[in-house]
Design a protein around this nucleic acid. Structure first.
Lengths: 237, 237
DNA sequence: GAGTGGTCTAGACCACCCC
DNA sequence: GGGTGGTCTAGACCACTCC
């Protein structure tokens, strides 16, 4: 792990332990931190900039670096945009899956374009119902090239696809583009997610990429609106 | 404008002009760019890292930097998390507002805690209906300390509050924490947003901060689900 | 004026990728 | 092996904030 990341972790831990409450939320200046962590200013700056991106601190030239307080209280399970974990990881393994469909089909022009593959290439078409504590929460439709994500089977689908991709196929997942929408539910949603009639859903459409820039997954997840929410932090550059 | 930002802009323009299509999406290596822009490697890296954060390129050690293609097609108006503009700016001024409520009240414990002010401090309670091309699209409830955002009046509310804060009060808006949810609509939503019964809404709850870390605004915006969507890009660090 | 962070440099070493 | 990006340094100059 690079030095700047260790420093980032150390300061983050301090923040979470209210260590900087003593100094009225002020974090020591860069030179002091250089001394403490035995590194150059650029390295400290890189560590602190990560915390800025995350919304944990703010910095002001001529003034100092301070812990940014006041977080909105969560009413629902947080689908954070920071991390790229599947549901399995972000719920610490409590998630299980029911495989509703698992087909091998020829890609149409839409999916081919999204996954950047030739038309009529074989792809998986997967529908899964994901459960937390045996209650249905997410209805997930996934398309992946079977030439890329080889050897998928129902056993893997019952657990974590991401785990298989990273630990068995040894591919590296690096980023994802997402669109978040509210939508009305259809009969399929209502049946599987056990919704009341007219309940909405929180839809997340996603393209996920490997670290070589290849889009390996296109998915549409429809979440129970009363269970999930999505958080985001934006900073002006 | 700092050098790294100019370089960032220049390369971004190149990307948008398909300039790197010639080289199969590959961007020149850092040393070549150093030469072209007459700067050091660190400066180039900072510029390219901005593009990585934005999801426009990916980089791979030992390999190179490449344009990341394939964007999801938008079905609705994009509420991007990148920028911190109000609706006025992101719709290029086509937005207008109807002020439904504009009260001065004493802050309760919840709002006080969020805005980091004493309880019973005077705050504005604002309800606005925001329109695009005279059609209602967003129902917005905003709370701000009147000690901080001084001199607000109905005329300002009809236009852009953010504009007033930045250009008249000369305060600097720097960041925002957001929570995005799907929700069922209530009668108030239905009336003002001209919804069909049972239409859902896309709710965004937000705390916005000034560059000195002060939370100046707490707002809850309820958007027509069929008009807006929220986009996000996440990279693993 | 003293102290802070923002930017930038020129160079170094290393890890990784692909041929 | 040659080329790429990732990290890190030691120092520099500057812009800004606050007293």
């Amino acid at each position: 792990m690079p030095k700047y990341k260790k420093i980032y972790e150390a300061i983050k831990t301090n923040i979470n332990n209210d260590f900087y409450k003593k100094t009225e939320n002020q974090i020591p200046d860069e030179l002091t931190l250089c001394n403490e962590f035995n590194c150059s200013r650029m390295t400290i700056k890189k560590a602190l900039d990560l915390l800025v991106q995350e919304g944990l601190i703010y910095r002001k030239r001529g003034h100092g670096s301070f812990v940014l307080e006041k977080t909105l209280t969560h009413r629902r399970i947080n689908l954070s945009d920071e991390k790229l974990n599947g549901l399995t990881k972000s719920t610490k393994g409590k998630a299980t899956s029911i495989v509703l469909e698992f087909n091998l089909i020829f890609s149409d022009s839409t999916i081919s374009s999204i996954l950047n593959i030739e038309e009529n290439t074989p792809i998986y078409e997967i529908s899964r119902l994901r459960l937390l504590d045996n209650e249905p929460y997410v209805l997930e439709k996934t398309y992946m090239s079977s030439n890329l994500i080889t050897g998928l089977n129902k056993d893997i689908l019952k657990n974590s696809i991401y785990d298989y991709i990273e630990n068995t196929l040894n591919l590296k997942i690096s980023s994802a583009k997402k669109i978040i929408r509210a939508d009305t539910s259809n009969d399929y949603d209502i049946t599987h997610l056990k919704l009341k009639k007219y309940d909405p859903v929180l839809e997340i459409e996603q393209i996920a990429y490997l670290n070589n820039g290849i889009p390996f997954e296109y998915s549409i997840c429809r979440h129970r609106y009363d269970v999930f929410e999505f958080t985001s932090f934006s900073v002006r550059n």
